[in-house]
Design a protein around this nucleic acid. Structure first.
Lengths: 217, 217
DNA sequence: CTATAACCGTACCGAACGGTACGGTACGAT
DNA sequence: ATCGTACCGTACCGTTCGGTACGGTTATAG
């Protein structure tokens, strides 16, 4: 009652608004488009508040990552009585979601930011991005794979290896190409077909029917 | 005779030395580690020469990419009388080379640079990187696939799709993770095993024996 | 009414960087 | 000897940006 809005973050609503504004600036202008003065102007707040809330610029960037990560809900389809077709649908949905997430404006901008900061100094932004953003996707997918294996829909020896293969089949080199800004790579209208094909290939490799030639590594 | 050294570039030897120095600076310090003043100091040249040779900073970056790309030799194994085992070895070698290239210090630094510049302004560095660096790798691989198909070792309908699948099986999410600077991802000692497994899986998908379930898209 | 706290807007500072200008030097051509 | 060219090293300029300081404003508590 005294807290009508669930605190999505460790941040105030006002701070979240500022962080959203910062994300928008980052998306539209890249790293150089996000300056403390510009953010203060765009968000109608003072630079002093920004520094009080987030410490310094790196703190702001970390907060932006944390804030954005707190927005994505990890869809947990635990699959009670999941038959083969349902399992396949879940996998396809995961593939589609993954492509959607990776091709999102904010995701691309944050990944570009973290990658740009990855070399000079130990800014740990990359770790933060992986830990806060990717980890829960990985967990969701691997739980799904585990459930599929338990029900005999697929077979594998190494869960992480199987997941990484699935990831590779879905994403291929799309992520890097989008990060590089190559025109004509982002085709959300083809995500359905890409997800279908990736899952098709994944079943060809790990489907329970094909036990004959298990990868010998 | 009058030109004992083959002109690898469109650049003077002196300019190439400066570009190499710039690449080294970029590798060690990231984008912020590469300043015109710092480059002039490290390469024992004047800033004026840098600007005369390369125009401006973006010209320097483009020249660095072109210079680096001119170094990698495109290994052309056209495979006369290439039997199945030989084709498989070629594919594995390609996979290994790809992992080596993508995990190289200079490659990672240049990709980070291009990705960082990808958002703000139309710097076209990403396009340049893909066109000069990736394209010839793609060509080499697709020529190899084509030869393998012609000899009946593999089967596919769409050459590019097959290649992208091969790429995904080899690289997975390794490239992005390395770009993000995640510790413990670069394991060159495992490249052999990874290449083997990727090729194994590629044959499971596109090997000539398994014509039964062609991907219906 | 007053004190305190949070915050906005603006002004300011110092450092770094891209880019330019200039004096000095080595060297080949005439 | 002299001219032109290419280059080095340094100094310089304008701008931008991260970070700080300060005065003015709202609002809540006592």
């Amino acid at each position: 009652m005294d807290q009508a809005v669930i605190p999505h973050d460790e941040f105030t609503l006002r701070q979240q608004a500022v962080l959203d504004c910062a994300l928008q600036l980052l998306v539209s202008g890249g790293e150089k488009g996000l300056t403390t003065a510009g953010l203060a102007r765009a968000a109608n707040c003072s630079k002093e508040s920004i520094y009080k809330w987030f410490g310094d610029r790196d703190g702001l960037l970390a907060a932006m990552i944390a804030h954005q990560a707190s927005k994505v809900r990890a869809g947990a389809e635990n699959g009670h009585a999941m038959d083969a077709a349902q399992f396949r649908r879940y996998l396809t949905a995961f593939a589609h979601d993954l492509l959607e997430v990776l091709s999102g404006d904010v995701s691309l901008a944050l990944n570009r930011l973290a990658i740009g900061q990855a070399s000079h100094a130990d800014s740990r932004l990359g770790e933060l991005l992986i830990e806060r953003g990717r980890r829960r996707i990985d967990q969701r997918a691997m739980a799904l794979l585990e459930a599929g294996k338990r029900r005999g829909h697929i077979h594998y020896d190494n869960r992480e290896a199987a997941y990484h293969t699935l990831y590779g089949l879905i994403v291929r080199d799309l992520h890097v190409r989008m990060l590089l800004g190559e025109g004509g790579v982002r085709r959300p209208d083809q995500f359905d077909a890409m997800a279908d094909e990736a899952v098709e290939q994944f079943f060809a490799l790990f489907g329970a029917r094909v036990l004959a030639e298990a990868p010998t590594g």
